[in-house]
Structure formats: structure tokens, C-alpha cells
Design a binder for these strands. Structure first.
Lengths: 191, 191
DNA sequence: CGGTCTCTTGACGGAGTTCAAAGCTAGTGG
DNA sequence: CCACTAGCTTTGAACTCCGTCAAGAGACCG
């Protein structure tokens, strides 16, 4: 829980009332590998802040294949943001890929925070700005890099993730099959 | 200019002081096809709101190929947001692809607006949320759709754009070559 | 030890790229 | 008004990367 408070304080000054309120709506949860937090089609009522472990959000296409939109590790937020912002049913699934600890927030209560403590707007703006930046980078990488180059970058951005999560999840994030990723990994070892 | 004021009023109530301030920092500009607004490597000081015409942002890769990150038509914002948010030199270029009208803002003055009129935070939050949603959709499309399906979707999202801008820009947005797009278009006509 | 999950391997096919050339189209100037 | 040019699109042939399908090899866990 302190992780989150520290993270907020790194961006905006936090009054003790605001801190108390945040603590009152935050709910710590321990999750096991495989737990599903959001399922496609459901109404999305929660957003999660990860303090330990790793989660991912993904969609399932018409052929039943999974495509990973996001991995969330320590200090990242995860949910189906499109569903929350547009008030639609989830089109994504969110699941736990290692045993994890998260802080759960009701999307509605989090929204109230902006009215009760307007200073949080600036915090959220920074979060969204960072999010946009990382999405822009990902799109540009997808447009200009080969699968092998994207994998190199992935390993730099998530230095330790790779030891804990299956390669087929990484493949589904990079936009290739697990077989192709396997071949890329073998090529890398040769060099 | 009224377009922008209307757009703001659609999201938040706008006091007359705030409106006056916005008008005082906004600068209307007419641009011709081919005008460059931002060049890679420069410090980015401006953000643009498009009221007429079409602009695009793109990067140039190590082989000299262009990759389009964004098209901006009426009511969209465009700039190198990564450069602005991270205070880095531009890694993108922004250029005018048809004769256009934009409202130009200094990034710094726009930032001041949040301090002077905190009610704008909610407006900006909505903008950023919408931006994140559209980027998520684009990434998922890139992961699960064929080039031809992505082109179909593109035509739906930008119904008229296609008549005014060269196909090779569309190809560079979709992540394919202009030759491939040409073949896709021919296949479509057959059906 | 047996089953399940994950990764690797091989053969083949297909979508998209590359390079090069030709065909269009619209604007420009003689 | 035509010829020329520049910008854009189409076409063809060869190639490459990656996907698909199917099978096998490890690894992990009850």
C-alpha cells in the first residue's frame, strides 16, 4: 500500500485527508497465478494497481487466438480502460500470470476522487500522458521493427519478466506466434 | 476558433474569463499542403488543433522509410506529444498533407492553463482517455487483423480522407508498403 | 510415474516485401 | 493547346519472413 502512496507523492503533494480517503477505498488483494480479474463481456467495475507479480490484459480474436495488449508489473495500473472510459462491456480479459499482489479500486470511487480532491487530476494527467507515450512507442516499434528487434526491446523494457512468464504470452504481445519466437530465441543464442 | 470553444463546452462548463484567456493564447493559422510544423530533432514548443484539412505525424526509420503515427483531421489535436511530455527533442515530424487551418498553442502556455483554470484538467483528462482508447484499438487491430481488414477499418474511421491524401501515406499508417496497398485495393474492387 | 503445460523442430504455404519498370494524372510552361 | 514533367499508382517476378499444422522433446507437478 505504501508503494502507491509513495508513487502519488512523487507526482503531487498529498494532504492527510486525501491520503486517508485513498486508503479507505483501496483494497489489497493477493492473487494466485491463473486468477481472472476481468472477463470479456462483463461490466468492468475495478481498476488494479500492481505491487507484486505480473498480470496481463488480452483479447481473443475470431479464430480463438489471444493477443496481449499489456503486461502489468510493479507500479503499473491495469484494467480494461476502454470499457471503463466508454462505459461498455469488457472486450478484454485480465488475468494473473504469476502470484501477485494488487490494490483494487472501484472505478466509480476512483472517479469520485477527482471531484473530492481535484489535485488528483494532475496525478491522473501524468499517468495518462505516460500511458500515451508508451503506446505511441509501441505502435512505432510495430511499424518499423522486425519481430527480432521488437523482442530485443521487450527484454530491455521488462528485464526480469521473461523468467517468470511463458514465451507464448510474450509472442502474443509482440504480434508473432510462439514458434516464431522460439526460432528468434535460438538465433539470438548463436550470436 | 468557435469549433474549439464549442468542443470545450461539450465537456466542461467554460467561464467567460477562461474563454477569454484561451482566445488570448490561441493563434489561428492557415497552412498549405506540404508545410512542415515540426521536424525531427527540434525542440517542440507547439500543439495544434485542426479545424480544417489534414495533417500527419510520422517518423523516419534507419532505412529512410516513413511510418505514420497519426492523421489529424477536424477537431483532432496533433503534435509530438512524447517530446512535449518528456521534454525531449522531437522524434517525429508533423506536416500538412492538404491545405489546412489549425489553431496553434504554445505547449507551455497550454500547461499554464491547468494552473490558472483547474477546471481544464477534466477536459484534458477526457482527451487523454479518448486518445488512450484509440491507441489501444489500433494496437489490437495491428495484432489481430490482416492488412486488408485494417484497410477496411481505416476507410470506415476516416470516410473521406482517402480522396484527398496519397495512398502511400495510408500504407505507412497501416504498416504495409504502397505496393501491397495497391494490390489490396484491386482485390476490393473485384468484390 | 503419468499427465499437462511449454518449448522446439520440420515441412510447407501464403501474405507481404523488394526492386524495377511502366502507366496514369494533373499541373506547368512554351 | 500540346508537350513535358513530377508525383502517384500499378504491375511483375523473385524472394523472405512468418504462420500453419503436426509431431516430438523437456519440464514440472501431483
Amino acid at each position: 500500500m505504501q508503494d502507491l502512496i509513495d508513487k502519488i507523492k512523487g507526482v503531487i503533494p498529498l494532504t492527510s485527508e486525501a491520503e486517508t480517503h485513498i486508503l479507505s477505498i483501496a483494497k489489497e488483494r493477493s492473487l494466485s497465478k491463473g486468477n481472472a480479474l476481468i472477463l470479456e463481456g462483463q461490466t468492468v467495475r475495478k481498476t488494479y494497481f500492481v505491487t507484486k507479480g505480473c498480470l496481463r490484459s488480452y483479447c481473443i480474436d475470431k479464430d480463438g487466438k489471444e493477443h496481449t495488449l499489456q503486461f502489468a508489473i510493479k507500479d503499473w495500473w491495469i484494467s480494461d480502460f476502454t470499457a471503463i472510459y466508454n462505459h461498455e462491456p469488457a472486450s478484454l480479459n485480465v488475468e494473473c500470470i504469476t502470484d501477485s499482489h494488487v490494490i483494487e479500486f472501484s472505478a466509480k470511487e476512483l472517479d469520485d476522487v477527482f471531484r473530492l480532491f481535484p489535485e488528483f487530476e494532475a496525478f491522473q494527467r501524468k499517468n495518462l500522458e505516460r500511458h500515451v507515450v508508451s503506446l505511441h512507442k509501441r505502435i512505432l516499434n510495430q511499424l518499423q521493427l522486425t519481430a527480432s528487434e521488437r523482442y530485443d526491446l521487450f527484454l530491455k523494457q521488462y528485464p526480469d519478466i521473461e523468467r517468470h512468464i511463458p514465451n507464448y504470452h510474450i509472442a502474443s504481445f509482440l504480434g508473432i506466434t510462439q514458434q516464431s519466437l522460439s526460432r528468434i530465441r535460438i538465433e539470438r543464442v548463436k550470436k
